[in-house]
């Protein structure tokens, strides 16, 4: 099956400064792919090239089988491409004096096979706000409206650029459920985020981008050899001192401890979190 997104050797420079420096990337159909990286690493530039907002300097890009640069030029071959792609940008413009329902209904008209606007408003959790002017929404509610506008055309591929920035934890959980529902419906999703637990909760695979280069791509569980990395075993001695040791065989260590102390006080066994390996990676690259 042809990947939903295929990128080879993507490069982009701004006035001599390299923003994207030879990125290769494949995102399969139906996959949720999270792009992680510090600010200024090239995440948004990469995504906006895929969305057709920016021109690239070099490399091959195919999004749903179409080169976005061609699609934006209004080329015949690319007709209908925008119908199939949903975009949730970072911080987008509001329609202050219109209501949530009006905006979603209007955007639905742009697409050939739109979803029911009322159902979409309900899915993003804005049912009670359907008749509210958009300028009265909270930050998180505005973001949900952004998502509603991104999915109302029933896209095959959805771009989400830092979708949950500014959400409270509860709103984030609800948002994650929405993404899982979309994924279950077969939508391919490319997500950028600052939140590692978000990538871990949602993504089939994550890619770490720093200084314009994609330095690692793997499942969240395996990124940076997390799954096989040495574990840290820590416990307290009878005197109360904290002891810790790094080991490839934690089970053996725990068995030894159990033999020595019986019930081991303060016993923990941890492997590196996604955050640990991520910080290691971007630290090494910098």
């Amino acid at each position: 099956m042809e990947p939903a997104i295929r990128v080879r050797g993507l490069r982009k420079t701004y006035a001599g400064a390299v923003a994207v420096d030879g990125v290769d990337l494949d995102v399969g159909q139906g996959e949720v792919f999270a792009l992680l990286g510090p600010n200024g690493a090239g995440k948004t530039t990469t995504v906006e090239i895929l969305e057709g907002y920016r021109k690239r300097d070099a490399g091959e890009v195919s999004v749903l089988g179409v080169d976005p640069a061609v699609a934006v030029g209004g080329h015949k071959r690319a007709r209908g491409w925008r119908d199939r792609v949903g975009i949730v940008l970072q911080g987008t413009g509001e329609f202050d004096e219109l209501t949530v329902g009006e905006v979603v209904r209007h955007f639905a008209r742009f697409y050939p096979r739109p979803d029911d606007p009322v159902a979409v408003v309900e899915r993003v959790g804005l049912k009670e706000k359907a008749d509210a002017r958009t300028h009265t929404l909270s930050g998180g509610q505005k973001r949900r409206l952004d998502v509603a506008l991104g999915i109302v055309g029933r896209p095959e591929l959805l771009f989400l650029d830092e979708p949950t920035t500014g959400f409270d934890p509860e709103a984030r959980r609800e948002f994650w459920q929405l993404i899982r529902d979309l994924q279950a419906g077969g939508t391919t999703i490319l997500l950028t985020t600052h939140y590692l637990e978000e990538a871990e909760a949602l993504a089939d695979r994550v890619g770490v981008i720093t200084r314009g280069r994609l330095i690692a791509v793997d499942s969240p569980a395996r990124l940076g050899h997390r799954d096989t990395a040495e574990a840290t075993v820590s416990w307290r001695t009878p005197e109360g001192a904290l002891e810790r040791t790094r080991t490839a065989t934690p089970t053996e260590v725990v068995a030894d401890l159990a033999e020595r102390y019986g019930e081991v006080p303060g016993l923990t066994v941890t492997r590196p979190t996604l955050e640990d390996v991520y910080l290691d990676m971007i630290g090494d690259a910098a």
């Binding site: 057709g52 209908g80 119908d83 413009g93």
Partner: peptide, 11 residues
């Protein structure tokens, strides 16, 4: 405000 950019991303 990004209203134009948003329109540009639709069909």
């Amino acid at each position: 405000r990004g209203v134009l950019k948003r329109f540009l991303g639709t069909p």
